[in-house]
Design a protein around this nucleic acid. Structure first.
Lengths: 99, 99
DNA sequence: GGTATATTTAGATGATTGGCTAATTATCTT
DNA sequence: AAGATAATTAGCCAATCATCTAAATATACC
């Protein structure tokens, strides 16, 4: 899980809403798309960003793609988040290639 | 603390590094700028983004501006973060009335 | 095979972002 | 008051981003 990609993924409200929906259970791309005002391709783009951050997984079931939250994501993301505020000198820059 | 601004603020690695530095204690704009390869004005821009998200505070001391982490930010930001993965029915914008 | 449905990929576009230099503001020192 | 130092604001530009429409891919059903 790439730090920068996780934070970037979470920077968009649509993607946070997708994560929130998936935290309640699996959903198909279409089911989620129904809840948003944006086009299918735009939804697909967001799924891709989240997938690339390894925050969600998609598997095909017939014509549909079923998306689910990566089960380890909550713990891992929380760790990344805490590290930003870490007072511990030993983990100053966890392993983030800052500019 | 505006949800979207907090997440956007944290989306940039430079800003996360600033937060990490400030989590160890107050620093002046100049002290922080020394640690980065970017120009002063660019640093100032990042301070501004963090200030607008109410994550840091700046006070003048003579010629310098001393920045510090908003002391409530860790708790609040963590709540926002957890809410993204909340399994309960509440939607975005739970609001920060707790403490 | 042919058509409908679900979703993604490709390519374009306007908005936002993060960086820069130059100019400005604020403060300190002499 | 003039000059030095610290930081910000103003204005510009290239890269990234979120969105769209059109086209492509994958699967299901007749």
């Amino acid at each position: 899980m790439a730090i920068d990609e996780v934070f970037k993924a979470m920077a968009d409200p649509t993607r946070r809403r997708i994560l929130r929906m998936l935290s309640k259970g699996e959903l198909t791309a279409g089911q989620m798309a129904l809840e948003f005002d944006i086009s299918g391709p735009s939804m697909s783009h967001h799924f891709n960003v989240l997938k690339h951050a390894d925050m969600i997984r998609g598997r095909r079931d017939g014509q549909q793609i079923i998306y689910s939250l990566n089960t380890t994501v909550v713990q891992d993301a929380m760790t990344l988040f805490l590290d930003v505020f870490a007072k511990d000198e030993t983990q100053e820059a966890p392993h983030e290639d800052s500019n």
